[in-house]
Design a protein around this nucleic acid. Structure first.
Lengths: 120, 120, 120, 120
DNA sequence: GTGGTCTAGACCACA
DNA sequence: GTGGTCTAGACCACA
């Protein structure tokens, strides 16, 4: 399975698909000029209607991240990694602010980071 | 203004209201036995329909966090703070994992935390 | 306490008051020409607003069951017992039909009746 | 007509809908994994607004009795029959107590039961 | 004033 | 077609 969808999330399925693909490109799991799975294949794989995947791809194309190749599928153009990073940092900033508001201790947050990054 | 709503978010308005109120209770901005703003007052304040606030309040009541008093309004019962903290930590964990996947450096994350908590 | 109100019931409070008083008259706990508690007294006793009791009394008067006596209060006129009985039997009929629909055994129902009436 | 609603009842319409559906599941008129009528179809059939049915379904989902399937409808999960039976018996118990209070004769009640169940 | 329910109608996401 | 959310507005019960 290429990736999975949370059908109970409030984030629309087509958004989840867009985000997963952006992440994969940022992580170089998908490289430039490489083909991504066809709409049909991906739809089948994640158990979703064709239209939903088609919408995700269409919007990714509008954002200049992928491009359709007549009769062949979609290839990766590239992505502004700084933008993705910036967005992720912004998300983090919001969570941390909210944690501070709740008076969660700084140590608690550092513990989470160490737990995931290792405590080097 | 008591608090604001992000109308562009995918999180439904009634969910945002629920979350804000839960936070306020967890942060002791709203104390037990205190009245929260009436449905109509809050609806007007945040520029939202009465039904939307009513749904948020009704669900908070089902969760045992507030209680309606006939003809008077809603009072705060209380909230399981550990649950709220745990949820926030879990949110953080997901972001951090995702940041690591993107190969964002640990230092970047620590910088955000210091920036908000102060660098003691 | 003269009687109690279920504030979580869907039956409006003024209806509950009407029903309780009708029952008391049918059961001869309140006899003809006897005074019932004043609006103020009853409202205080059951923890309810004056208007709510007033409405119940007003409607009972319209139904010819009680009558206001200028400056003194309300006295019992009387009640058509057959009507009350008939209504109760009708309620029972509906429950029993519904129980039969659910395929609850006749014996189960008889058991309830014996349990309450004694098994003579 | 799938079922009918009493618009003069004090029981809210959404509660009546919930109860009817619970009964149908308990009676196996609706079986597990079967789709129930769509929100819009049922709303039209019983002459009620879409939102009212939607609320009933949402609450039944919260109770774990039905489940929504994206873009398809709601399917039956199941129901605790003992709970439904117990509730019905409890309703009966209350009526019978009240009938006894009114000094309705035991025979009257038995007559109702025989009338509906047949006098075997 | 407070909460509670309901309607008519709109617009979105998904199949 | 399906569910989900939201608005504007109405009317009821209760204080």
């Amino acid at each position: 399975m290429w990736f999975s969808i949370d059908f109970h999330s409030h984030v629309p399925v087509y958004e989840q698909i867009k985000n997963k693909i952006k992440e994969k490109i940022a992580k170089k799991e998908l490289k430039e000029n490489e083909f991504i799975p066809s709409i049909r294949v991906l739809a089948k794989e994640i158990g979703v209607n064709l239209n939903t995947v088609a919408r995700a791809y269409r919007e990714l194309e509008q954002e200049g991240i992928i491009q359709s190749v007549r009769g062949s599928g979609y290839i990766v153009i590239g992505i502004d990694k700084n933008k993705i990073y910036g967005e992720k940092i912004e998300e983090l900033r919001n969570i941390v602010k909210s944690a501070k508001n709740l008076k969660i201790k700084k140590e608690e947050l550092l513990k989470v980071i160490d737990e995931i990054y290792g405590g080097e």
